[in-house]
Simulated scan of single mutants.
Amino acid sequence: MIDRRSLILASLAAMLPAETFAAWQLRPPEPQTVDYGPAKLDIYAPDSARGRPIVFFIHGGAWRLGNRGNVNAKPGFLLDNGFLFVSIDYRMVPQADVATQASDVEKAYAYVRSNIAKYGGDPDRIAVMGHSAGCHLAALTGLRGGLPAVAALVLDDTEAYDIAALAQAQGGRLRPIYAKAFPDRARWRALSPATYIESGKHPPVFVAYSGAPIRSVAAHAFADRLRAAGTRVTLFDGSAYTHMSINRDFGEEGDALTAAVMAFLKSTVA
């Protein structure tokens, strides 16, 4: 387990390129927007790109809010470090349910895998990253086999790995933010990433959690089950972060989570 408080960025200097935290701070590059069917996605790629690994990002927002533009420093930082970056929209609750959202993610991924080579990306080196609701959707689709040949999963801070266990931890019923997303108890199992842990071989998984105790408990339980099933897991203690800052600070100079994720990506897709 990587502890934020003890992670010293200097210790990663030999593992990361010198420009990892280079200043690119003017503004992110302009993306190319494409329609993948149910919604749109943005592809950030320099003209000179050839065979680069890809970070495919799923935004958060309680399954009800947010959009593909909620990317903060990620595009510029990742392009500066040799990646392409893709950020997707998916249909929101209540117009679409969570099962439909997961299907949207899988369709977006299929589009990227089929088309990213012409933007300079390597379709066999895609890491899927999600925050909050996007973290849940990344875990769900990645573990149930909906992201064929995905190289790695970066899961950034959710409680929703096991919906029934979450309800039990909350006194037998889900808090409103989760109850609105998961109103049908009969579907909790199918929509829980933990359901699919023993279903087969999974890619390496990076699991981060912020300061809320319930997220720490959920992340540890999920990581333990993944490891027991033979999956390679990196667990990041982000207890010094809030739920928002653990996403917002990625790519900022000196950020500990960024250093840990980059080390993980270097060992899996870079």
Rank of each mutant, 00 (worst) to 15 (best):
A165S: 09
Q170N: 03
Q170M: 05
G171P: 08
G172R: 05
L174Q: 03
L174M: 12
R175N: 10
P176S: 05
P176F: 01
P176A: 04
I177M: 12
A179N: 02
K180Q: 14
F182P: 02
R185Q: 14
A186F: 08
W188G: 00
R189C: 08
R189A: 11
A190Q: 12
S192D: 02
S192A: 04
P193M: 07
P193L: 06
A194T: 09
T195L: 12
T195E: 14
Y196W: 13
Y196I: 04
Y196T: 01
S199Y: 07
S199Q: 15
H202C: 11
H202A: 14
P203E: 12
P203T: 12
P203V: 12
P204R: 07
P204I: 03
V205L: 01
V205F: 01
V205P: 00
F206G: 13
F206K: 07
F206V: 13
V207E: 10
S210A: 15
S210D: 14
G211I: 06
I214M: 15
I214P: 00
R215G: 02
R215D: 03
R215L: 15
S216W: 11
V217I: 15
A219S: 14
A219G: 00
H220N: 13
A221F: 07
F222R: 11
F222K: 14
F222D: 11
R225D: 13
R225Q: 13
L226W: 00
L226C: 03
R227D: 02
A228F: 08
A228H: 10
A229C: 09
G230I: 07
T231W: 06
R232C: 13
L235G: 01
L235H: 04
F236H: 05
G238F: 12
G238R: 05
A240W: 05
A240C: 11
Y241L: 09
Y241H: 08
Y241K: 05
H243C: 03
H243D: 05
S245P: 13
S245Y: 13
